[in-house]
């Protein structure tokens, strides 16, 4: 096994078990004495980020784990600039394996995160937004759907609606549906998170489908489950990215 692959494996295992000391020990045991483990991880991430590794969604996720590991110890790497520049924290984890459609599951009360009261005038105030006429005929596609584990933000669906150049698009309607219910929400109501951002709290044990009503196809079904963030057991969250088809 090559050093890069080993470092990637260590980071991936760390992202699952959350045992940082164990990850450090694993690295330290395998590299020459005197080389800092986090520095080594940063160099391996740089090496992988320089290859076509970043083109594979699964491998990109591993690379992000490597990045988290060395950044938490104050290290930097060329991977920081080589990784695709993503809007805010929207890591794109393209999910090419559709999950099962929703089945009979308990119907939860919709629990959208409380939002500040804003009107859809947000959109017209933004110079970066397309005109209503443009968006009304445009189709959108789900360009990314992936999980993340953050004890500070458990069981969230974070949605980003963006132009193809990465600019956020406000005031776009989004819809989540589950067995026996649905709810709608809009991008741009939390401008501090970006014009194209919207979020929704998901209930554990429930399968959801996301779309932009009338503008996109349905997402694969997704739901929350337990995960570990830095040793803390919490609930998985999801990120989704919509972009215009053309």
């Amino acid at each position: 096994m090559r050093s890069e692959e080993y470092a990637a494996l260590v980071a991936q295992a760390w992202s699952v078990d959350g045992d940082r000391a164990r990850a450090r020990e694993r690295l330290a045991a395998a590299i020459p004495t005197g080389i800092d483990a986090a520095r080594h991880m940063a160099e391996m991430a740089c090496r992988l980020a320089s290859t076509d590794y970043v083109n594979d969604p699964g491998d990109l996720r591993i690379l992000r784990s490597m990045q988290n590991f060395y950044q938490m110890e104050g290290q930097r790497s060329c991977a920081d600039t080589l990784l695709p520049a993503l809007d805010n924290e929207a890591v794109l984890l393209l999910d090419s394996s559709p999950s099962p459609r929703p089945s009979a599951t308990p119907v939860p009360p919709p629990s959208k995160t409380p939002l500040p009261t804003l009107t859809l005038a947000t959109r017209s105030a933004s110079t970066s937004q397309p005109t209503p006429g443009e968006t009304s005929v445009r189709r959108f596609e789900l360009a990314g759907l992936g999980v993340f584990c953050d004890a500070d933000r458990p069981a969230k669906l974070a949605v980003y609606v963006q132009e193809r150049d990465g600019r956020g698009i406000a005031a776009m309607a989004l819809r989540v549906r589950w067995q026996g219910g649905e709810d709608r929400f809009f991008s741009g109501l939390r401008p501090e998170r970006g014009q194209g951002f919207a979020d929704f709290t998901i209930e554990p044990g429930v399968q959801y489908v996301l779309d932009m009503p009338g503008l996109s196809d349905d997402s694969p079904a997704f739901g929350s489950a337990e995960c570990v963030d830095a040793g803390v057991r919490t609930m998985r969250s999801w990120r989704a990215l919509f972009r215009p088809v053309n």
């Binding site: 096994m1 090559r2 050093s3 890069e4 080993y6 494996l9 260590v10 991936q12 295992a13 699952v16 078990d17 694993r26 330290a28 045991a29 395998a30 590299i31 020459p32 004495t33 080389i35 080594h40 160099e43 391996m44 090496r47």
Partner: peptide
């Protein structure tokens, strides 16, 4: 060894059972 290439040069032998056990654990964990 430090910047890439084949694994080795550390205090643990990549061919040792201890190392292979841990590799297997990491593979299974992921």
């Amino acid at each position: 060894l430090a910047s890439g290439g084949a694994l080795g040069g550390g205090r643990i032998d990549p061919q040792s059972q201890q190392f292979r056990d841990d590799l297997l654990v990491m593979i299974a964990t992921t």
